[in-house]
Simulated assay, not measured.
Amino acid sequence: MTAQSVADAVTPPLAPGANLRWSVVRPTVERLKPATILELGCGGGGFGARLATMTPRYLAAEPDPVSYALASSRITPVGGTVINGDHTQLPAGETYDLVCAFEVLEHIEDDRGALAGWAPLVKPGGNILLSTPAGPERMGAWDEAVGHFRRYSAAQMTELLTEAGFVDVQVRLYGWPLGYILEGARNRIATRRQGKAVTEGAEESIEERTASSGRQLQPKGSLAGNVVKLGTAPFIFVQRLAPTRGTALVAVGRRPA
């Protein structure tokens, strides 16, 4: 077994959508071969526990204290480091070969301002790697429930990264066709939950929804994780046949040297 396959066997299980996303993110990271990785908003550390095995130095920042504690318990044992904070609390003056933010940008009202703050963290000649929901016209109940301000088209993401100073921007959509089924199910769940919250007077603020978003609908335990992994495997292959279709996107851009 390779080091990565060993890591996959012991790292935390991923939800179906995250499995589809990882199948795009992993080969991208392998192609870039970064010596240092910074992940912003690492959530519970599902990706971070994997990324930390792919580089000599992995650092993550997670502002939510509950998610931070979970991420730290998963990432520290495989050699990574997690801080409880955002990018403003990182070591001053340091830059990284690869800066990642998965399912983060859509939660930030001023996305251009966020990218302007993240860009200097990328080493000249290094890369930024993002994932977000795709299709502005697909905004639905689940987006509202988890604190999304927006979804992105490939053209919008390319424009944002170009404005932030990145070049050679590449955007890949993923999630066809399973993503559409998952999205429909999530919207139905969110609609029911929202109705119950209104009835009980327990509606959350957008900050609370954002903080808990990464903990929603996660598989419980390795058995459930293996079932999800097995069930999504055929769709990982199928989505490669339609790189311009899907409910989500992965984008990579390079900071000029």
Score class of each variant (00 low, 15 high):
139 M>Y: 15
140 G>Q: 02
185 A>H: 10
165 G>T: 05
157 M>L: 13
122 V>M: 01
213 S>W: 01
162 T>Q: 14
130 L>M: 09
133 P>V: 09
170 Q>A: 15
231 G>M: 13
216 Q>S: 10
185 A>I: 05
159 E>P: 06
211 A>D: 11
137 E>M: 07
191 T>G: 10
185 A>T: 01
148 H>C: 07
206 I>A: 15
125 G>N: 03
159 E>L: 15
196 K>E: 14
201 G>A: 14
235 F>H: 02
222 S>M: 13
239 Q>E: 15
206 I>M: 15
193 R>M: 14
243 P>N: 00
143 D>E: 03
217 L>I: 03
185 A>C: 03
159 E>I: 09
226 N>T: 06
189 I>G: 10
198 V>L: 10
165 G>P: 04
157 M>F: 07
184 G>D: 02
175 G>P: 05
136 P>H: 08
210 T>S: 15
243 P>D: 05
250 V>D: 13
240 R>I: 10
187 N>P: 03
193 R>H: 09
203 E>S: 13
247 T>A: 04
118 W>Y: 14
241 L>F: 02
238 V>W: 11
204 E>G: 13
164 A>Q: 05
171 V>G: 10
222 S>V: 14
178 L>K: 02
119 A>H: 09
135 G>P: 01
208 E>W: 03
180 Y>D: 00
224 A>E: 01
138 R>V: 08
169 V>C: 10
139 M>Q: 12
168 D>I: 08
146 V>L: 07
137 E>N: 05
131 S>N: 07
249 L>N: 09
225 G>Y: 03
120 P>I: 04
246 G>S: 06
190 A>K: 02
206 I>S: 12
211 A>T: 00
244 T>G: 03
151 R>Y: 03
114 A>Y: 14
119 A>V: 05
233 A>R: 15
150 R>N: 05
195 G>L: 13
149 F>D: 00
213 S>K: 07
251 A>N: 06
215 R>N: 13
126 G>F: 06
191 T>N: 11
133 P>F: 08
238 V>K: 00
170 Q>R: 08
242 A>G: 04
244 T>S: 08
231 G>D: 05
191 T>A: 15
195 G>M: 15
151 R>E: 07
177 P>I: 01
204 E>W: 14
242 A>S: 10
218 Q>D: 11
188 R>D: 02
182 L>Q: 03
128 I>V: 12
238 V>I: 11
201 G>P: 12
214 G>L: 06
246 G>E: 06
135 G>L: 09
222 S>C: 06
170 Q>V: 13
125 G>I: 00
210 T>L: 08
235 F>G: 09
165 G>R: 09
239 Q>G: 12
135 G>M: 04
177 P>G: 04
165 G>Q: 08
249 L>Q: 12
227 V>N: 10
116 A>L: 10
224 A>V: 06
196 K>V: 08
140 G>L: 04
120 P>C: 07
214 G>Q: 13
230 L>R: 06
240 R>M: 08
247 T>P: 00
242 A>P: 00
174 Y>V: 04
239 Q>L: 08
193 R>W: 11
209 R>P: 02
227 V>F: 09
250 V>T: 12
161 L>F: 10
207 E>V: 15
148 H>G: 07
179 G>D: 07
244 T>E: 11
240 R>A: 14
133 P>E: 11
157 M>E: 12
192 R>F: 11
221 G>R: 02
207 E>C: 06
148 H>D: 10
185 A>R: 12
159 E>D: 15
172 R>M: 12
219 P>K: 02
145 A>I: 00
243 P>G: 02
